[in-house]
Design a protein around this nucleic acid. Structure first.
Lengths: 223, 223
DNA sequence: TCCCCCGTAATGCTGCCGCAATCTTCGCGG
DNA sequence: CCGCGAAGATTGCGGCAGCATTACGGGGGA
């Protein structure tokens, strides 16, 4: 899952990015609305976290701006104050939810799940492949009801493949699912993850194989 | 899919061509508007990537020039600066989208998909033939929901034929779909691809046949 | 401090793909 | 109806790009 965080308090932003990263969420961060707009044009996010007070204006103005482009990416508004009036304001403008600072990361996670669960969401709640069940929102994986814990990056690769099971996933798509654009990789890190993931899946008897399509990408299917 | 890239920075152009090639996109490249115009007369492109600053003039002038000939090929403008004003400028002249440099190739891919998705587009999102379903944008092929992985060049041939199923596709069109004009071929490489593709389709029970029209080209139809 | 994740790079291997040789099919003219 | 030439079909081969695997070491968390 990939989020855009629009927030000018650097400390909060860093802490949040770190916490989300541990939960398997890739976060792009910006402090200005102008950049944010550009980023939404360039990437496809699962959700947007939007602060209200920003250096170049009131965050809420961003919402109609974005909606006008036809994007319906869920937006969760972050605000220091927590009054009902402000909440209505945001929601009227097309925000999907609202979170008062300070907040627990787990509360944010819960709201994220709630927001992503709404149709039309491409995010399925459960994906069944082979003997595995994958929950892309909670990032949990079980083999015949026995939980399997995978390293974070391998997990992200697996989820990205599972979401499009039986279909080719371009190499570049996988890279985007695992890294944000500050983390450059210049080696075969992705290949290595795939290799290690394969091994783990085999050991766990997951009933899944990952195939390579030479020059195109990878594909996950039941064996 | 075939693109025309009009861009004078050689490094960027080469890198981009390479990256697109890995995503199954054939790119023709030129640095001058004059050549570009000629190329659009000779070839049919799915989209055009247009830089603004070019040795022989402002790139935007190309847009009305092209539109006047009745071509509605989508144009994506590449620009170093990223200001709203410039965006409007381009869009008013008939560009379909714009992209600020530097950009990620995946941003470009997303925009391409968006632009090609707009009606009236010849590029269908899903093509059904025989027992196959082909997704030309994600480059995935399934036979009765079972994924079929094809080598890149065979895949490109198949997509080109499927896009015009039941109609003859000129040999030269197929060559253009698989090779850019820097990759010369002097043998019957295309014939070889067709042959191997046929074999694979047969083995997979795709319910498709590829016929030859002697001296003209090939034709794909359900059996 | 220990452990494990994860990026890096070296190594070996797979199979794509261009090429060309050989065989087959097609269409035309006599 | 037959023969001939051109176009296409098929297949083996070799080079090489892309991928798989694994060992190593830095670094961060418990």
């Amino acid at each position: 899952m990939r989020l855009l965080l629009i927030e000018d308090e650097k400390e909060l932003a860093d802490a949040l990015s770190g916490a989300l990263s541990k939960r398997g969420i890739v976060t792009d961060h910006t402090t200005h609305l102008a950049d944010a707009f550009e980023l939404t044009r360039q990437n496809s996010y699962d959700a947007i976290l939007l602060d209200r007070r920003l250096p170049d204006g009131e965050g809420l103005t961003f919402i109609p701006m974005l909606r006008r482009t036809g994007t319906d990416t869920p937006i969760i508004v972050l605000t220091a104050r927590n009054e009902p009036l402000e909440r209505v304001e945001g929601l009227d403008l097309g925000a999907d939810d609202y979170l008062g600072k300070p907040f627990l990361v787990d509360e944010l996670m819960a709201r994220l799940r709630a927001v992503l669960r709404r149709p039309p969401s491409l995010t399925e709640l459960q994906i069944s492949v082979g003997r595995m069940v994958i929950d892309p929102l909670h990032l949990s994986v079980t083999v015949e009801s026995i939980p399997l814990d995978l390293p974070r990056r391998e997990l992200l690769v697996l989820v990205a493949l599972a979401k499009r099971k039986d279909k080719t996933v371009l190499r570049s798509t996988l890279e985007a699912a695992v890294y944000n654009y500050e983390e450059e990789i210049q080696s075969n890190a992705l290949d290595a993850h795939i290799s290690r993931l394969r091994k783990r899946l085999l050991d766990a008897g997951a009933g899944i194989t990952i195939h390579n399509i030479r020059g195109v990408g990878y594909l996950l299917k039941e064996e």
